[in-house]
Design a protein around this nucleic acid. Structure first.
Length: 429
DNA sequence: TCTGGGGTCCTAGGACCC
DNA sequence: TCTGGGGTCCTAGGACCC
């Protein structure tokens, strides 16, 4: 059996790079993209990082500095980033048919069949092609395991001298770099495990590699044991080329303004339930229970705190919006209490199952009704897809666009690639 | 004034069963 | 007086990821 080789390619400051693709003025200036409600910085270009902006910095704390230093600030534009991600992945597929889309900006590729001496040039070719065809700059890490590919990618990002590519299937490169990566920078090692590993005397990735797997197991359970093997070049994690069916689905949002009355909470939760139905139907999944939650904010010190999480059982597994809505509103009504300033709420489901296999005969709702409901949902989704989300909504529950609690995106760029009326305009002089 | 959203995996411990 | 033991299922919580 031939040795495995994985490549991990990711977009540099991906959301920011997307913004730069359609606005040449953003090149070389600091750019950041904010989370929902324009809350925190979640993507920063190198120039923005150089100004000291950290991942997750609350925007209100850095707003003045951004203004003073000319940082260009954007709200999240998920439709746009998702579309750019699909384009980038289409290019990856030309370089390897076996690909795992790991996140919106990262994909693993199986490059085992590429001769060792050709891997680096393949990676460079791929970077250039992605850049040319999509405008997105990337870095590529290669390794005999996914963990080492991830490590290689990290090294490529941190060391511009490498020109965006690092290949740890090369023994010399491996020996050179493995001792230079701090424990906390290893994929799968968070703050808690970094502390445990440091207590075992581990300073860098080589020290973790040299740990007795049993010792690693004791400190970090099977995760630690796997990590040691992966760092040694023995794969424990394979490529997941077909996305696993998801196990849970949630729609949760912080409110842009605190919610203090029940009717408003019902609107918000109904909106999330509506979205939940869309997500479930898109993937052909169903649920027979849903958890509704809402809570106050820890940031509201000196205010009474309350956190509600209530499970509502549905009569049968479904993805029907009207059924979900009814259940979720019931969840709000039975747990509501006045006198609190709620900051966030949502709906969560776990134990999802394929709709097709989940439905069984149920008294009161026959096959005909079920088919009519399914057709109604199909029409609902088609209308909202064509005319924009919220074009058709249930009459009850006080649906209306742009409530005071709705998520804010005050600095969002146009949806350049997915909305015909927001296409970039080019003028020839 | 203003602090994201959505996932996965793993384990411990209790409940329950035979 | 002495009072089994092993298995499964479920849940909550921790940890991590992007």
């Amino acid at each position: 059996m031939s040795a495995k080789a994985y490549a991990l390619s990711d977009g540099n400051s991906f959301y920011c790079s997307c913004e730069r693709v359609f606005d040449a003025r953003l090149a070389k200036v600091p750019v950041i993209v904010l989370s929902n409600n324009d809350g925190c910085a979640i993507a920063r270009t190198a120039e923005a990082k150089a100004l000291g902006i950290k991942m997750g910095d609350p925007f209100f704390k850095i707003r003045d500095m951004c203004k003073a230093r000319g940082v260009r600030v954007y709200s999240s534009n998920y439709a746009f980033y998702g579309d750019m991600s699909a384009r980038v992945n289409a290019v990856y597929r030309d370089f390897s048919p076996r690909i795992e889309i790991y996140s919106i900006d990262e994909s693993f590729l199986d490059v085992s069949d590429v001769r060792e001496r050709d891997r680096e040039s393949l990676a460079r070719d791929m970077r250039e092609t992605v850049r040319a065809w999509t405008g997105i700059p990337t870095c590529v890490g290669i390794g005999p395991t996914k963990t080492l590919a991830k490590l290689a990618n990290h090294i490529a990002k941190k060391n511009p001298v490498l020109g965006g590519v690092c290949d740890l299937t090369d023994d010399e490169q491996y020996d050179h770099w493995i001792i230079r990566v701090p424990v906390a920078d290893i994929w799968g090692v968070g703050p808690a495990n970094a502390r445990r590993l440091e207590a075992l005397g581990c300073d860098n990735a080589a020290d973790v590699r040299d740990l007795d797997p049993k010792v690693a197991h004791k400190a970090m359970t099977v995760v630690g044991e796997r990590l040691v093997h992966e760092l040694r070049g023995t794969p424990c994690l394979d490529l997941e080329t077909v996305a696993a069916t998801r196990k849970g689905c949630a729609v949760t949002r912080s409110f842009s303004e605190r919610v203090e009355d029940r009717a408003t909470m019902e609107q918000a939760v109904a909106t999330h339930a509506f979205r939940l139905g869309e997500k479930l139907r898109r993937e052909g999944l169903a649920t027979n229970h849903v958890t509704v939650f809402f809570h106050t904010s820890e940031h509201d010190r000196d205010r009474p705190q309350r956190s509600v999480s209530t499970l509502v059982t549905l009569p049968e597994a479904t993805s029907d919006t009207l059924a979900l809505l009814k259940a979720c509103l019931h969840g709000v009504r039975k747990t509501w209490r006045d006198g609190y300033r709620y900051s966030k709420g949502g709906v969560v489901t776990t134990d999802l199952m394929p709709l097709a296999t989940s439905q069984r005969a149920m008294p009161g709702l026959g096959q005909l009704e079920r088919e009519m409901r399914a057709a109604l949902m199909e029409a609902l989704d088609a209308c909202n897809h064509r005319f924009g989300r919220g074009a058709v909504v249930p009459g009850a529950a006080g649906f209306a666009p742009n409530h005071e609690w709705s998520t804010k995106f005050e600095m969002r760029s146009p949806r350049y690639t997915t909305r015909i009326d927001e296409l970039p305009v080019v003028r020839a002089a």
